[in-house]
Amino acid sequence: MSKEIDKAKIKAAVKRRKRETYKPVVPATQLGFIHHNVDCIGCRACEIACKDKNGLAPGPRFRRVSYIEGGVYPDVYAYKVNMSCNHCAQPACLPTCPTGAIFKRASDGIVDIDSTLCIGCRRCEAACPYGAPQFDPGDNLIKKCNMCVDEIDAGRKPYCVMACMMRVLDIGPIDEISDGSFQTTAIGPGDMPVKQVKNMADPELTKPSIRFIAHSKGGVQSKQ
């Protein structure tokens, strides 16, 4: 009998070693995006700046400006929701990656991908609730926004932010963006940053590092 118990214990111990729970990196400062959904003219200069910087062919778009509209003629409304990678506090993409191509930087929380390590299994693409990882059919790899780490490391802001003609897209420490202490042109007088906008996947899934100034018709009641 005791022999059997020992066996079970050993088996359990072996299994325990295999069973792991992913523990996300907690960065010193988590950088994130802020976007003003109303004051954005939707010109997509940010998208093109991003594509040019990253040498992307038609197809993959790291940054995506969504056009939302509603109402009934003539009482209509329209606004934009602008997302790239949200550099989540608990990224869903990261633990899916079999090759370790995706990693989260300890200094600023940027979720970066080394696409040279990617084998194109597209798991991260499926897991991300916001559609950030982009499959490039040209070379069968996943690529995604890395907040222009080369620019960040050089002390500058990413290309999309610097492309914004309206100055409604910015990056900063996400905690400071949330509590309003971060100085940015993206937030106008009286604007309140929110975590979620209409039709956006639940931010509790991955705790994305992005805030919005929502349109009056584009807010979400419970998730301020």
Binding site: C43, R44, A45, E47, I48, A49, D52, G155, R156, K157, M162, A163, C164, M165, R167, T185
Partner: peptide
């Protein structure tokens, strides 16, 4: 870097300009 005043604002190109390549 980052200078962007009302008097001398940055002259940021639109999507067409950014696609010039």
């Amino acid at each position: 870097y980052g200078k962007d005043t009302d008097e001398e604002p940055q002259l940021r190109a639109c999507l067409r300009g950014r696609a010039y390549r």
